[in-house]
């Protein structure tokens, strides 16, 4: 649920990067933070959570223009995957406007991806959201590892595993190298803004 900040004339919405541990959520955000410096507002908050890091920063996407005279400010978050971080997850997921699901292309992580997606579904449900309705984009990360001879799942298989029912936009990526990071975020922003416009009939 986007927040209208009348004082600052801003619309504040929330995009969350979700996915199994070590899938590259934080790498995605770190790359965005580095490469889109001009659009980043404030510092990056980085919390060391077990096995992963939780990141947060504010982002002012360029080229989206203003909506009814208001700037759009996006809060970008990663969610700690471990079950025990329920307080953090609750704060991050409450009122989420868009989700990027980062899947790990490593063959050995196949099951982890599916479990995490299921977990996302049940977490969203807790906040009254349906995974079928929330603006969602898939990213198949770590494609570059194929060059090193590490067994990866073919994109078709990942698509079947994770996206058969959802049918959301999906992108191959290599977050370490920055490939596919921007396009994933842009697509998610587009879907999120569209959903907000539809919800509030701004398009009229």
């Amino acid at each position: 649920m986007a927040i209208f900040n009348l004082k600052k004339r801003e619309i504040e919405c929330k995009i969350v990067y979700y996915g199994p541990g070590r899938c590259g959520k934080t790498t995605n955000l770190e790359f965005i933070f580095k490469s889109y410096k001009k659009q980043v507002r404030g510092e990056m908050v980085s919390i060391n959570t077990e096995g992963d890091r939780t990141l947060f920063f504010d982002f002012l996407p360029m080229g989206l223009g203003k909506i009814r005279g208001c700037d759009v400010r996006v809060q970008l978050y990663t969610v700690p995957g471990q079950v025990k971080y329920s307080s953090t997850r609750k704060l991050v997921l409450r009122g989420v406007d868009g989700v990027v699901f980062v899947a790990d292309s490593l063959e050995v992580r196949r099951e982890k991806n599916m479990l995490s997606l299921k977990d996302l579904q049940s977490n969203l449900k807790e906040y009254g959201k349906s995974i079928f309705k929330v603006p969602l984009v898939m990213q198949y990360n770590k494609r570059d590892l194929a060059e090193q001879g590490i067994p990866l799942m073919p994109l078709e298989q990942m698509e079947r595993d994770l996206n058969r029912q959802l049918k959301v936009p999906s992108f191959p990526a290599s977050a370490v190298k920055g490939a596919g990071v921007g396009v994933t975020l842009k697509e998610c922003l587009k879907l999120t803004l569209k959903a907000l416009q539809k919800e509030f009939k701004w398009a009229q």
């Binding site: 510092e43 919390i47 959570t49 939780t54 947060f56 971080y85 307080s87 953090t88 704060l91």
Partner: peptide, 11 residues
């Protein structure tokens, strides 16, 4: 930073 750190410390 405070909010996320605080919640993490609770968890």
């Amino acid at each position: 930073g405070i909010i996320l750190e605080g919640l993490k410390m609770v968890d």
